[in-house]
């Protein structure tokens, strides 16, 4: 019983990261039908900037702030400079561009900071069961997710963003600057993604450190419904707990296989996600 409890707690803290990174995918997917494969690379670059800042100043939190700021800015730039140019052709072109960007940014990170892992600090004490760091990860993700959902639901900006996502042409006819809303969405998504990166990366940073986490986050988003923010957050935590239990009870070598099985099963049986159409439309 004690073991299960331990595994669940572990799963909650890794699930928080999948939820946040998954949410960053959903924000963009819902508005553009594009899965942003460059998301882990944006988070990676912003985390390396945090690493450099912390190394230079000795302050973890200054690095943390730099990561979130740089992440947001990167998202905005990617949308403005790359995605906007290719998105008129087809969604597939945008997806290919994000894939290419992933490879380029990982390579650039390797060129600047080398492919060797560097020590990357935790926010708080990480020792013991459900440590201060775990608590921080879960609460930071919950607060951020709540913030994003409240922004969408209750602010004029959120209403504009949803209108631009659901019916871009109608939104334009109602005076919404749809292009600006897309840029804002990329910025917001990259902000959430950078937070996920800062939580997922320790103890070591290297160019491929987020690859596995990204696969789990994508699985969480598919599980919850790629256009359903609430579903994805729930999906992230559920996947975190599930994978942690499989790792502890069956064996850690089965974790990637289990995630893949979940992905295939959901896509085969309920392609719109476990939480179905009706919720996806209401959110």
């Amino acid at each position: 019983m004690n073991t299960i409890w331990h595994l669940v707690l572990n799963g909650i803290s890794s699930g928080a990261v999948y939820a946040a990174l998954g949410l960053s995918l959903v924000i963009i997917y819902r508005a553009t039908r594009v899965v942003n494969f460059a998301q882990p690379a944006l988070a990676l670059i912003s985390a390396y900037l945090a690493y450099a800042t912390t190394k230079a100043t000795g302050s973890y939190w200054l690095g943390f702030a730099v990561a979130l700021l740089a992440g947001t800015l990167l998202g905005v730039l990617v949308e403005r400079l790359l995605i906007r140019r290719v998105s008129r052709r087809s969604e597939l072109s945008s997806i290919i561009v994000t894939l290419g960007l992933l490879l380029v940014l990982q390579a650039v990170a390797g060129m600047i900071w080398s492919n060797e892992p560097h020590a990357f600090g935790y926010a708080f004490d990480f020792r013991g069961r459900f440590s201060a760091t775990d608590l921080f990860a879960v609460s930071a993700v919950l607060v951020t997710a709540a913030g994003v959902l409240l922004l969408f639901k209750f602010t004029p900006l959120g209403l504009r963003m949803r209108a631009a996502a659901f019916r871009p042409e109608v939104a334009k006819m109602l005076g919404v600057r749809v292009g600006l809303m897309l840029t804002a969405g990329w910025g917001l998504a990259a902000l959430v993604g950078s937070l996920a990166g800062m939580l997922a990366i320790p103890p070591f940073i290297s160019p491929n450190v987020l690859d596995k986490v990204f696969v789990f986050a994508l699985t969480a988003a598919v599980l919850g419904g790629l256009d359903n923010p609430v579903g994805t957050i729930v999906g992230g935590f559920a996947l975190g707990i599930g994978l942690s239990c499989i790792s502890g009870l069956v064996g850690p070598e089965l974790v990637p296989l289990a995630a893949l099985a979940v992905l295939v099963l959901v896509l085969a049986v309920r392609p719109s996600g476990l939480f179905g159409r009706t919720i996806a439309r209401r959110v």
Partner: peptide, 26 residues
């Protein structure tokens, strides 16, 4: 200039009041 497209262009994912507020947000 307000343009009501064929079929109305109501955004079904939003509530009635959200649709209305959207019209005046700018």
């Amino acid at each position: 200039l307000a343009h009501v497209p064929e079929g109305g262009g109501v955004i079904t994912e939003l509530t009635v009041e959200e649709n209305l507020r959207l019209g005046a947000l700018w």
